[in-house]
Design a protein around this nucleic acid. Structure first.
Lengths: 190, 190, 190, 190
DNA sequence: GATGAATGAGGTTTCATTCAT
DNA sequence: CATGAATGAAACCTCATTCAT
């Protein structure tokens, strides 16, 4: 059997191991051997599930992004106020960013060599942008947001809220502050 | 003559070459040989200016961050309204982010191996955070901002405005939108 | 049941698969997995019939050589003129060479690592040489060949007629030409 | 400097080392590290002269074949009788074959993966065939050979005189025998 | 100072072989 | 008997670093 779907369980275990090693060793410190050890399998086994290192990273990016977007969509779909959902979205976003330790951009760039790969990466970003744009449009429709907003632009601005604070400020207070600013910034007049 | 004080001109040329190669090849694709070629010097010459690759990257991070912070401070010091300066700050920030193509985090992490280096990196972040916190405090003092803000927190929020929009939205409109939101979000009542 | 005496049918199928893969992929491209796939069996099964890859190759060399020598002996034993039989011998030889695509020497060398193996390989060559020397001696006895020949030497010369023409000359014409030269070269005066 | 012509001296030394290792270890036993050790250089240095193992082998085949063909052409050009030159040609051929220890075919096949490479290999064979065909045509013109020969076919037959005797017969006697057979076989009537 | 040929540690990848099912 | 997932030794190749010129 060539690659693909032996056991998805092991495939996922390798991906989990990969991000763990990535967090600990950084991108240049990421060695297949360490991934294998972290997943408690043999080095060669990794290659039964992923053609090469590049594919492994690509799968990782895809896997975590997909998971993140699914969570974001689930939050957006909830029947709660715009700003309650915004808070959760931002919280989830921070978790995503923490998980990658600032490596997201580099790993994505690493993986996106070649035209096809670049398109694939853009596709991921578009999906996230769409989720947020739709979220804004939804908020406007429900009358929770000002009516003079451009959903695409505001979506972009939301997606740019991307860096976790590099310094250890209190996360709760930080989020509260952020949401309050945005409430005043984009909320409808009472 | 000490390693660090040779011809600063060539030193800088190497740093410029480094970030160019970084932009084109990514972090893992960054090879000293390519840097040398881009700087139009011999491979060995790089080592006359930097102890090793790690030092080169560290110097690069330091160099560009310092430059960026200096620009930010200059903008903050200008005698213009808070939101005019905010717009310039954000514009400068986007330029910084573009320059690094998402690699800032990874390169910084790469460089910050070891306790001493970690402290050094934190120092950089603190400096940026301080600039922004002071900026917010200044805005409050001048009565341009609401008085109930926590400068440290808002400074953190500003520093997190860190990801350039991944998609090609119009930069001017994007900045306008962002500033307007913040104006409503943190500006003093008229 | 001993390793060597399992189903000879499957054993032979593996050998056939091996030479097929060898023809397509070359010596360095020969992988047990491909052999197994070509034989439509599992990879592990190959090891039920052959101790290891080396043994498999050795068996292959032995199998095809034995077959070839048997055919050669059969041709020699026929009750036809020397040169009619020579033509058939050469034709069979060309088929043998084609089958190996120039890899015979390399595979044999591969297999013949170690003193015992070397002796075994020399044994094969000696057998072929003997067949041809005897053939020449027979031709001399029957008066079809010149009486001043050294059967051992001429046998060696015949065995050296070993490379198929690398270029696609007409096989029939080629053989005719060769036999005619030899007829004039070693045939008895009429 | 990228590959190609640093010092041709070292390049040649690597090729010499390669064929030595090939003779001793066989095709599958050929390791770049051994080649490097045999050439008394570092492993990485080999890669400064040859992109990869495949290129090294290709260069080796080309180098030795070119050398061999040049020698063959020099022999053919000499102002001596056809059969004197034939003997030298055969002797040189035996040396060539001995040098490769039966690996020529396999190495050539190894190298000739891909259409372009196949054409390149055919080109080599054609060159040899041409040398021999011309040699025969020359012999006919000079009246040393029968006039009813087909130079192309006889050239093919000569090029097929390719396997050194596998058994240690006396080389001199062997060559004498062979030349005598060919003299009777293709020589003009006295 | 400047250079780039040389090096070899170290990472990636392959594949013969094993063994639990 | 048959299988193929798993393994890790071993081979390939890269590239940071050195050093003789």
């Amino acid at each position: 059997m060539a690659l693909a779907t032996r056991s998805n369980e092991k495939r996922r275990a390798i991906l989990e191991a990969t991000i763990r090693v990535l967090q600990e060793q950084g991108l240049r410190g990421l060695k297949i051997e360490d991934v294998a050890r972290a997943a408690e399998i043999g080095k060669g086994t990794v290659y039964l599930y992923f053609r090469d290192k590049q594919e492994l990273l690509k799968a990782l990016v895809e896997h975590r992004a997909t998971e993140f977007y699914a969570d974001a969509e689930a939050i957006v779909r909830q029947d709660r106020s715009f700003f309650e959902r915004l808070r959760d979205l931002l919280e989830r976003r921070l978790a995503f960013i923490d998980e990658w330790r600032g490596l997201w951009g580099a790993v994505a760039a690493e993986v996106a060599q070649g035209e096809a790969k670049k398109a694939w990466l853009t596709g991921l970003h578009e999906r996230y942008h769409r989720i947020l744009s739709d979220f804004v449009a939804d908020g406007m429709e429900r009358g929770e947001l000002r009516q003079d907003l451009e959903p695409e632009l505001v979506g972009a601005a939301l997606s740019a809220l991307g860096c976790a604070p590099q310094l250890p400020v209190d996360r709760g207070a930080y989020l509260d502050q952020l949401v309050e600013i945005w409430k005043k910034g984009v909320g409808a007049k009472p």
